[in-house]
């Protein structure tokens, strides 16, 4: 099964920069990752590494993993020279391929378990100010980008977003992250047949 995960960090939010600058932050990164921070001297490096780890964690949850996120167990192998930052995130025997980009104060990462799919992922931001239906608005935007039939966005019991066609026969692989009202949505524009739908719930069951 092809899965994707994403993450968004707003470094303009002082809470985030304070967190990444806290004494003890090294506990959540490997020594090699902390060495990358020494090379760049930039808190954005840590934010990128964190976002890549969390994106990989979201992939792992879709594959059936039910434990909580323990960042130091996710090892990022990357170079700090390339931009966007490309790298592999490993958790035990699992390998995920991740990309992290900076846009001003925003750090955005995506990860997938199939390297060839990484460049195919389409991502966008969407901001919600009121009581609009977020799922409907996101589904409508993806429909427009993907030139597809109407889509329906829901969530599984594990809070995993699921984007299906109206007939619920096929789905697009999607991941969402948010910083307050700002949502970061990533989609793999490839239809997957739904084979493991929970009868009567209208929801698909990830592994």
């Amino acid at each position: 099964m092809i899965v994707l995960g994403n993450d968004l960090i707003n470094l303009n939010n002082r809470v985030n920069t304070n967190t990444l600058c806290r004494a003890g932050i090294e506990k959540f990164f490997t020594p090699k990752e902390m060495h990358l921070l020494e090379l760049t001297g930039d808190v954005k490096t840590l934010a990128c590494l964190w976002a890549m780890k969390e994106s990989a964690y979201k992939c792992l949850v879709k594959l059936g993993f039910r434990k909580a996120f323990s960042p130091a167990k996710y090892h990022v192998k990357t170079s700090v020279i390339e931009k966007p930052l490309l790298g592999e995130v490993t958790y035990g025997e699992h390998v995920f391929y991740a990309k992290c980009s900076e846009d001003g104060d925003f750090i955005r990462a995506v990860a997938t378990n199939e390297e060839s799919r990484l460049s195919q992922i389409k991502s966008f931001h969407i901001c919600f100010h009121g009581t609009e239906n977020k799922n409907e608005a996101i589904a409508a935007k993806i429909k427009k980008i993907n030139h597809s039939d109407p889509l329906e966005l829901s969530k599984t019991d594990q809070n995993i977003p699921v984007l299906m066609n109206k007939r619920k026969t096929h789905r697009l692989e999607i991941s969402m992250a948010n910083e307050g009202k700002l949502y970061y949505v990533s989609v793999l524009p490839e239809w997957f047949r739904i084979t493991n739908q929970k009868v009567g719930t209208g929801k698909i069951a990830y592994a």
Partner: peptide, 25 residues
């Protein structure tokens, strides 16, 4: 989820314990 860092470090300080990677999971 980024507040995991703050919560873990605050709990460690308050209760004088160390939360290892397996416990965090």
């Amino acid at each position: 989820s980024a507040r995991i860092v703050d919560i873990v470090l605050d709990v460690e300080d308050r209760f004088d314990i160390e939360i290892d990677d397996d416990s965090l999971e």
